[in-house]
Design a protein around this nucleic acid. Structure first.
Lengths: 144, 144
DNA sequence: TTGAAAATATTGAATATTCAAGAATTGAAG
DNA sequence: CTTCAATTCTTGAATATTCAATATTTTCAA
């Protein structure tokens, strides 16, 4: 008797990748109205607290590797969305700040992202959404 | 009074990306024992039903764009893990099959992937895991 | 039956990401 | 103090991914 061997669609790793791909695709579509990739939305959102964030901190927060972040920030500096300041307390570090132009863009992007969340809430339900968020947070916690 | 503006960590899109990144990283680490990227595990797993799968079908199943899949399959053909056969019923299509060598590798990879699932089950819990899977499936459903 | 449109897969050029190495600064042990 | 290891960020080369265009085959309407 042949072993039925779990189909890939039952692996948590696969379901996460699939869900992430789909939701990300939808978000991408909305943000493309402003011609901005999802990662830049994340960067602007994190920086919009107005504080300076080091590159390392940012890389963690926005789920990008260091060199990838450096190069994306280069582009955003060219677009004058953010700027670099050397950290006076530790000159190895660079502190990133959001510019005024960045803040304006960030607001537009946020409302596009909120639109999406609301769209999900409608089709997927309030209860499922908050339960899913809770479980994801706890999965992330348990992975550290 | 300043609007507190949802932190990025509360967005479903972000939580999914974060959880996916973490779980994927762990899986990657295990599969690296066999020197194989996660996508190749997916491909081998899907093909291991022994049937022929067209490139389009495969691309959907393994969450890759067409050209990316084509190039990855080129490598796997070089490694004699899979092979192409022209679909006799529709000669636009190419049917992909897993080779014997591919089957052997696939088995090893599966056991590494199952190890991971079990590790998650332990640290995260049986109940949470199955509930999370259920919610993810239903999110994916509701997105079509 | 013919010819235009659709479906499928691949290719090549443009872009983006990653890996490994490097430069600058700090920390800390001797 | 001095020196060596660790931390932080960037760079350049190697890889990988994506976009747009192409080739082939099928479908289907006229």
């Amino acid at each position: 008797m042949a072993k039925p061997n779990t189909p890939i669609t039952e692996h948590l790793a696969y379901l996460l990748a699939q869900a992430n791909r789909e939701i990300n695709r939808q978000l991408e579509l909305r943000l493309s109205k402003e011609g901005v990739p999802v990662e830049q939305w994340r960067i602007l959102k994190v920086l919009s607290d107005g504080d300076g964030h080091s590159m390392g901190e940012l890389a963690d927060a926005v789920l990008l590797n260091h060199p990838t972040l450096t190069k994306m920030i280069d582009r955003m500096v060219s677009d004058t969305l953010v700027y670099r300041v050397q950290d006076p307390n530790d000159r190895r570090k660079v502190l990133m700040f959001i510019s005024d132009r960045g803040k304006v863009l960030s607001k537009k992007l946020n409302s596009l992202a909120v639109d999406q969340e609301e769209h999900i809430l409608e089709s997927y339900g309030d209860k499922s959404t908050s339960e899913l968020k809770r479980l994801l947070e706890s999965l992330i916690d348990s992975s550290n």
